[in-house]
Protein backbone atom coordinates (compact mmCIF):
# COMPACT_ATOMS: atom_id res chain seq x y z
CA UNK A 1 0.00 0.00 0.00
CA UNK A 2 1.19 3.46 -0.75
CA UNK A 3 -0.06 6.98 -1.31
CA UNK A 4 -3.39 6.94 -3.15
CA UNK A 5 -3.95 8.64 -6.50
CA UNK A 6 -6.23 11.58 -5.80
CA UNK A 7 -9.38 12.07 -7.85
CA UNK A 8 -10.53 15.70 -7.75
CA UNK A 9 -13.72 17.24 -9.12
CA UNK A 10 -13.44 20.91 -10.07
CA UNK A 11 -16.32 23.37 -9.68
CA UNK A 12 -16.39 26.70 -11.52
CA UNK A 13 -17.97 29.24 -9.21
CA UNK A 14 -19.28 32.62 -10.37
CA UNK A 15 -20.64 35.04 -7.77
CA UNK A 16 -21.38 32.20 -5.38
CA UNK A 17 -23.03 29.84 -7.86
CA UNK A 18 -21.65 26.88 -9.77
CA UNK A 19 -21.68 27.53 -13.50
CA UNK A 20 -20.59 25.73 -16.66
CA UNK A 21 -22.74 22.73 -17.28
CA UNK A 22 -24.03 21.05 -14.21
CA UNK A 23 -26.59 18.29 -14.46
CA UNK A 24 -26.97 16.53 -11.15
CA UNK A 25 -30.21 14.65 -10.90
CA UNK A 26 -30.75 14.31 -7.20
CA UNK A 27 -29.94 17.82 -6.14
CA UNK A 28 -32.51 20.30 -5.01
CA UNK A 29 -30.34 23.14 -6.19
CA UNK A 30 -27.79 22.17 -8.80
CA UNK A 31 -26.10 25.53 -8.67
CA UNK A 32 -25.15 25.55 -5.00
CA UNK A 33 -21.43 24.85 -4.59
CA UNK A 34 -21.77 23.75 -0.96
CA UNK A 35 -24.40 21.20 -1.83
CA UNK A 36 -22.37 19.87 -4.76
CA UNK A 37 -19.26 19.69 -2.61
CA UNK A 38 -21.20 17.59 -0.12
CA UNK A 39 -22.32 15.19 -2.86
CA UNK A 40 -18.80 14.78 -4.24
CA UNK A 41 -17.48 14.20 -0.74
CA UNK A 42 -20.07 11.44 -0.24
CA UNK A 43 -19.08 9.91 -3.60
CA UNK A 44 -15.48 9.62 -2.47
CA UNK A 45 -13.76 12.70 -3.91
CA UNK A 46 -10.27 12.99 -2.40
CA UNK A 47 -10.18 16.77 -2.60
CA UNK A 48 -12.29 19.54 -4.07
CA UNK A 49 -11.22 22.43 -6.24
CA UNK A 50 -13.21 25.63 -6.59
CA UNK A 51 -12.27 27.86 -9.47
CA UNK A 52 -13.58 31.35 -8.81
CA UNK A 53 -14.38 32.88 -12.19
CA UNK A 54 -16.10 35.93 -10.73
CA UNK A 55 -15.14 39.01 -12.71
CA UNK A 56 -16.07 41.85 -10.36
CA UNK A 57 -14.26 42.32 -7.10
CA UNK A 58 -17.53 43.29 -5.38
CA UNK A 59 -19.07 39.90 -6.17
CA UNK A 60 -15.89 38.18 -5.07
CA UNK A 61 -16.89 38.47 -1.43
CA UNK A 62 -19.46 35.77 -2.09
CA UNK A 63 -16.58 33.40 -2.81
CA UNK A 64 -15.24 33.74 0.72
CA UNK A 65 -18.71 32.96 1.98
CA UNK A 66 -18.93 29.86 -0.25
CA UNK A 67 -15.50 28.68 0.90
CA UNK A 68 -16.37 29.15 4.54
CA UNK A 69 -19.75 27.42 4.24
CA UNK A 70 -18.11 24.50 2.43
CA UNK A 71 -15.37 24.16 5.02
CA UNK A 72 -18.04 24.05 7.73
CA UNK A 73 -19.59 20.94 6.21
CA UNK A 74 -17.04 19.11 4.08
CA UNK A 75 -14.06 17.53 5.81
CA UNK A 76 -11.74 16.92 2.89
CA UNK A 77 -9.13 19.32 1.49
CA UNK A 78 -10.38 22.32 -0.47
CA UNK A 79 -8.32 24.20 -3.07
CA UNK A 80 -9.51 27.59 -4.27
CA UNK A 81 -8.15 29.33 -7.34
CA UNK A 82 -9.07 32.29 -9.50
CA UNK A 83 -8.30 35.95 -8.99
CA UNK A 84 -5.52 35.39 -6.47
CA UNK A 85 -2.96 38.20 -6.79
CA UNK A 86 -1.27 38.76 -3.46
CA UNK A 87 -0.28 37.07 -0.22
CA UNK A 88 -3.17 38.95 1.41
CA UNK A 89 -5.61 37.29 -1.00
CA UNK A 90 -4.17 33.95 0.06
CA UNK A 91 -4.49 34.88 3.72
CA UNK A 92 -8.17 35.71 3.27
CA UNK A 93 -8.92 32.43 1.48
CA UNK A 94 -7.06 30.37 4.08
CA UNK A 95 -8.92 32.15 6.87
CA UNK A 96 -12.21 31.43 5.09
CA UNK A 97 -11.34 27.73 5.18
CA UNK A 98 -9.35 26.93 2.03
CA UNK A 99 -6.48 24.48 2.54
CA UNK A 100 -4.67 25.31 -0.66
CA UNK A 101 -4.78 28.27 -3.00
CA UNK A 102 -4.21 28.22 -6.74
CA UNK A 103 -2.41 31.05 -8.51
CA UNK A 104 -2.17 31.53 -12.25
CA UNK A 105 -2.04 34.83 -14.17
CA UNK A 106 -0.79 36.99 -11.32
CA UNK A 107 2.30 34.80 -10.95
CA UNK A 108 3.13 35.18 -14.65
CA UNK A 109 3.11 38.95 -14.32
CA UNK A 110 5.06 38.96 -11.06
CA UNK A 111 6.76 35.64 -10.21
CA UNK A 112 8.09 37.06 -6.90
CA UNK A 113 4.58 36.73 -5.49
CA UNK A 114 5.16 32.96 -5.33
CA UNK A 115 7.91 33.21 -2.75
CA UNK A 116 6.08 35.99 -0.91
CA UNK A 117 3.20 33.57 -0.41
CA UNK A 118 5.24 30.48 0.46
CA UNK A 119 7.46 32.35 2.93
CA UNK A 120 4.37 33.44 4.79
CA UNK A 121 2.22 30.31 4.62
CA UNK A 122 4.50 27.43 3.65
CA UNK A 123 4.92 25.63 0.32
CA UNK A 124 2.04 23.25 0.88
CA UNK A 125 -0.65 25.92 0.51
CA UNK A 126 0.38 27.13 -2.94
CA UNK A 127 -0.71 25.47 -6.18
CA UNK A 128 0.63 26.79 -9.47
CA UNK A 129 -2.17 26.57 -12.01
CA UNK A 130 -0.87 26.43 -15.59
CA UNK A 131 -3.06 26.66 -18.69
CA UNK A 132 -0.79 25.35 -21.44
CA UNK A 133 -1.12 24.41 -25.10
CA UNK A 134 1.10 22.98 -27.79
CA UNK A 135 3.32 25.47 -29.59
CA UNK A 136 6.24 25.05 -31.95
CA UNK A 137 7.59 28.40 -30.77
CA UNK A 138 8.75 27.17 -27.37
CA UNK A 139 11.68 24.78 -26.78
CA UNK A 140 9.57 22.23 -24.88
CA UNK A 141 6.77 22.38 -27.47
CA UNK A 142 4.32 23.76 -24.88
CA UNK A 143 3.47 27.37 -24.06
CA UNK A 144 1.66 29.14 -21.24
CA UNK A 145 -1.64 30.83 -22.11
CA UNK A 146 -4.07 33.13 -20.33
CA UNK A 147 -7.71 34.13 -20.89
CA UNK A 148 -8.95 30.57 -21.20
CA UNK A 149 -6.24 29.55 -23.64
CA UNK A 150 -6.85 32.39 -26.08
CA UNK A 151 -3.73 34.42 -25.37
CA UNK A 152 -0.12 33.35 -25.45
CA UNK A 153 2.22 35.00 -22.98
CA UNK A 154 5.39 33.94 -24.80
CA UNK A 155 6.51 31.64 -22.00
CA UNK A 156 7.68 28.02 -22.22
CA UNK A 157 5.32 25.98 -20.06
CA UNK A 158 7.94 23.48 -18.87
CA UNK A 159 10.45 26.22 -18.04
CA UNK A 160 7.72 28.16 -16.20
CA UNK A 161 6.79 25.20 -14.03
CA UNK A 162 10.46 24.62 -13.24
CA UNK A 163 10.88 28.24 -12.18
CA UNK A 164 7.71 28.22 -10.09
CA UNK A 165 8.81 25.08 -8.25
CA UNK A 166 12.16 26.71 -7.55
CA UNK A 167 10.26 29.71 -6.19
CA UNK A 168 8.44 27.42 -3.79
CA UNK A 169 5.06 26.23 -5.11
CA UNK A 170 4.00 23.01 -3.41
CA UNK A 171 1.92 21.53 -6.20
CA UNK A 172 1.31 22.04 -9.93
CA UNK A 173 -2.09 21.90 -11.60
CA UNK A 174 -1.44 21.37 -15.31
CA UNK A 175 -4.37 22.07 -17.58
CA UNK A 176 -4.12 21.31 -21.29
CA UNK A 177 -6.04 23.93 -23.25
CA UNK A 178 -5.86 21.74 -26.39
CA UNK A 179 -7.38 18.74 -24.66
CA UNK A 180 -9.81 20.67 -22.45
CA UNK A 181 -13.40 19.86 -23.35
CA UNK A 182 -12.50 17.30 -26.05
CA UNK A 183 -13.05 14.20 -23.87
CA UNK A 184 -10.33 12.54 -25.96
CA UNK A 185 -7.97 12.06 -23.06
CA UNK A 186 -5.30 14.05 -21.25
CA UNK A 187 -2.28 15.46 -23.10
CA UNK A 188 0.10 12.72 -22.00
CA UNK A 189 3.18 14.19 -23.64
CA UNK A 190 2.62 17.41 -21.77
CA UNK A 191 2.23 15.53 -18.48
CA UNK A 192 5.50 13.63 -19.11
CA UNK A 193 7.37 16.81 -20.08
CA UNK A 194 6.27 18.63 -16.92
CA UNK A 195 6.75 15.57 -14.67
CA UNK A 196 10.39 15.41 -15.73
CA UNK A 197 11.14 18.81 -14.17
CA UNK A 198 8.74 18.73 -11.21
CA UNK A 199 9.60 17.34 -7.77
CA UNK A 200 6.27 18.43 -6.27
CA UNK A 201 2.89 16.74 -6.75
CA UNK A 202 1.41 17.11 -10.24
CA UNK A 203 -2.33 17.31 -10.91
CA UNK A 204 -3.39 16.60 -14.50
CA UNK A 205 -6.42 18.37 -15.96
CA UNK A 206 -8.15 18.70 -19.33
CA UNK A 207 -9.50 16.10 -21.71
CA UNK A 208 -10.96 13.41 -19.47
CA UNK A 209 -13.79 11.51 -21.13
CA UNK A 210 -13.47 7.88 -20.10
CA UNK A 211 -12.17 6.15 -16.96
CA UNK A 212 -9.14 4.78 -18.87
CA UNK A 213 -8.01 8.34 -19.56
CA UNK A 214 -7.34 8.82 -15.86
CA UNK A 215 -5.19 5.69 -15.81
CA UNK A 216 -3.14 7.01 -18.74
CA UNK A 217 -2.59 10.34 -16.98
CA UNK A 218 -1.37 8.60 -13.82
CA UNK A 219 0.95 6.36 -15.82
CA UNK A 220 2.33 9.44 -17.59
CA UNK A 221 3.30 10.77 -14.15
CA UNK A 222 0.32 12.55 -12.59
CA UNK A 223 -0.13 12.21 -8.81
CA UNK A 224 -3.71 13.40 -9.00
CA UNK A 225 -6.35 13.76 -11.71
CA UNK A 226 -8.89 16.54 -11.99
CA UNK A 227 -12.02 16.83 -14.10
CA UNK A 228 -15.16 18.94 -14.22
CA UNK A 229 -17.86 18.31 -16.79
CA UNK A 230 -17.68 14.50 -16.93
CA UNK A 231 -18.46 14.47 -13.24
CA UNK A 232 -21.02 17.28 -13.29
CA UNK A 233 -23.03 15.66 -16.09
CA UNK A 234 -22.93 12.31 -14.39
CA UNK A 235 -21.14 10.72 -17.38
CA UNK A 236 -18.63 9.34 -14.92
CA UNK A 237 -18.71 9.01 -11.18
CA UNK A 238 -15.76 9.32 -8.83
CA UNK A 239 -16.34 5.62 -8.12
CA UNK A 240 -16.06 4.67 -11.83
CA UNK A 241 -12.72 6.42 -12.06
CA UNK A 242 -11.40 4.85 -8.85
CA UNK A 243 -12.53 1.35 -9.82
CA UNK A 244 -10.72 1.63 -13.15
CA UNK A 245 -7.59 2.99 -11.47
CA UNK A 246 -7.70 0.18 -8.92
CA UNK A 247 -8.13 -2.46 -11.62
CA UNK A 248 -5.07 -1.03 -13.37
CA UNK A 249 -3.03 -1.58 -10.20
CA UNK A 250 -3.04 1.93 -8.74
CA UNK A 251 -3.81 2.63 -5.09
CA UNK A 252 -6.96 4.64 -4.47
CA UNK A 253 -8.83 5.55 -1.30
Amino acid sequence: MSLAVRVIPCLDVDAGRVVKGVNFVDLRDAGDPVEMATVYDAEGADELTFLDITASSAARDTTYDVVSRTAEQVFIPLTVGGGVRTADDVDRLLRAGADKVGINTAAIGRPEVLSEITHRFGNQVLVLSVDARRSSEQPSGFEVTTHGGRQSVGLDAVAWVKEAVERGVGEVLLNSMDADGTKNGFDLEMIRAVRDVTQVPLVASGGAGRPEHFVEAVEAGADAVLAASVFHFGELTIGDVKNTLRAAGHDVR
Binding site: A4, Q124, G170, P201, D223, R253
Partner: peptide, 11 residues
Amino acid sequence: APIVPHMGWNT
Protein backbone atom coordinates in the same frame (compact mmCIF):
# COMPACT_ATOMS: atom_id res chain seq x y z
CA ALA B 1 11.44 11.14 -1.54
CA PRO B 2 11.24 11.86 -5.28
CA ILE B 3 8.15 13.99 -4.79
CA VAL B 4 7.80 16.29 -1.77
CA PRO B 5 5.48 17.46 -0.15
CA HIS B 6 3.99 14.09 0.75
CA MET B 7 0.43 15.08 -0.20
CA GLY B 8 -2.70 12.96 -0.18
CA TRP B 9 -4.33 9.93 1.43
CA ASN B 10 -2.00 7.32 2.85
CA THR B 11 -2.27 4.23 5.03
